[in-house]
């Protein structure tokens, strides 16, 4: 009885503390973003969206964030007379990998003005840092709004202590001839076609349990797309490859690099738990080079 009471007391004392700390961490970021900046004021409550309600806010764009693992989004809007509204959206992704993933699929030119990576366009700043994906919009842009959103972006970036990390699978991309801006990380098969058509179906058994990255390579007149998928086990990788060969091109069962009718080359390899695919490759030689580089990196890490 005494022990039970002690355990219960301990639990009751620690549980609310956990909740408070968790809530404090989550609200701290929004609390550190000023409600007034350069004459813009936000005097309404922040709006909070989850997986169910995000569609009402950004329509089908919500699926992008859901496909990467998203817990909530907080919107704050600033107003100033005779100036565009400033719309700040903070997405709480489930990991820094997910924040990077969502960012990589929703930008054009990548810079590093804010956070880990950013894009600055007319009337917009997008960046990711830690587990957060941040969007700050103000259309149509004015000189004043441009300065204001830059200041907001910097404050948010400074308030996020943890930089976060790039997904580990990205480190397994060969660095030679890699087009850095083309890197796309994903865990939903919809993103397979990010750099050219591969399939409209889930031809490689991609799920939330797999780590996928696709990127472009360019060397002189040679170009290719490299797809790397990490499965939980070597057996899963094997099954995925069988499915791919049957669905994509059965010639790959006999030969790991084939030439398509459009004179571009496609190749696949299994490296332990990894599927390595080369697509839209301009030559067999370049495909082999990429496979060789992928093997070297895989051997080092595994």
């Amino acid at each position: 009885m005494i022990i039970r009471t002690a355990v219960l007391t301990f639990y009751l004392l620690s549980f609310p503390f956990e909740i408070n700390l968790h809530a404090q961490v989550e609200t701290d970021l929004m609390n550190q973003i000023p409600k007034e900046i350069n004459g813009w004021i936000s005097d309404n409550d922040d709006r909070i969206f989850n997986e169910e309600t995000l569609f009402d806010y950004i329509d089908g764009g919500a699926e992008l964030f859901i496909s990467f693992g998203f817990s909530k989004a907080v919107n704050r809007t600033y107003y100033r007379n005779n100036q565009p509204d400033i719309i700040v959206d903070v997405f709480y992704m489930n990991s820094s990998s997910n924040a990077f993933g969502a960012f990589s699929h929703s930008v054009g030119k990548i810079g590093n003005d804010f956070g880990m990576q950013s894009q600055t366009a007319e009337g917009a700043i997008l960046f990711w840092k830690g587990k957060f994906y941040i969007s700050i919009l103000a259309y149509p842009e004015t000189n004043e709004s441009k300065k204001a959103i830059e200041q907001i972006a910097q404050k948010i970036s400074d308030a996020i202590i943890d930089n976060g990390e790039f997904p580990l699978v990205i480190s397994k991309l060969p660095k030679d001839n890699l087009v850095n801006e083309s890197i796309r990380y994903f865990r939903h098969y919809v993103w397979l076609n990010s750099h050219g058509f591969i399939s409209n179906e889930n031809i490689l058994n991609i799920s939330q349990e797999t780590e996928c990255v696709i990127a472009q390579y360019s060397k002189g007149s040679s170009d290719a797309n490299l797809l790397l998928i990490e499965y939980k086990t070597s057996e899963e990788a094997e099954l995925a490859i069988e499915k791919f060969i049957n669905g994509y091109d059965k010639r790959l069962a006999a030969k790991n690099i084939i030439e398509r009718n459009d004179n571009l080359w496609v190749g696949i390899q299994k490296l332990g738990r990894y599927f390595v695919g080369v697509f839209n490759c301009s030559s067999e030689k370049f495909a082999n080079e990429l496979f060789s580089l992928a093997r070297q990196i895989n051997n080092k890490i595994e």
């Binding site: 950004i58 764009g61 719309i87 929703s106 366009a121 007319e122």
Partner: peptide
């Protein structure tokens, strides 16, 4: 012709 950010719109595109 190109979407960026959660709202998808950019006058650049």
């Amino acid at each position: 012709f190109h979407s960026v950010g959660p709202h998808g719109f950019s006058p650049e595109y």
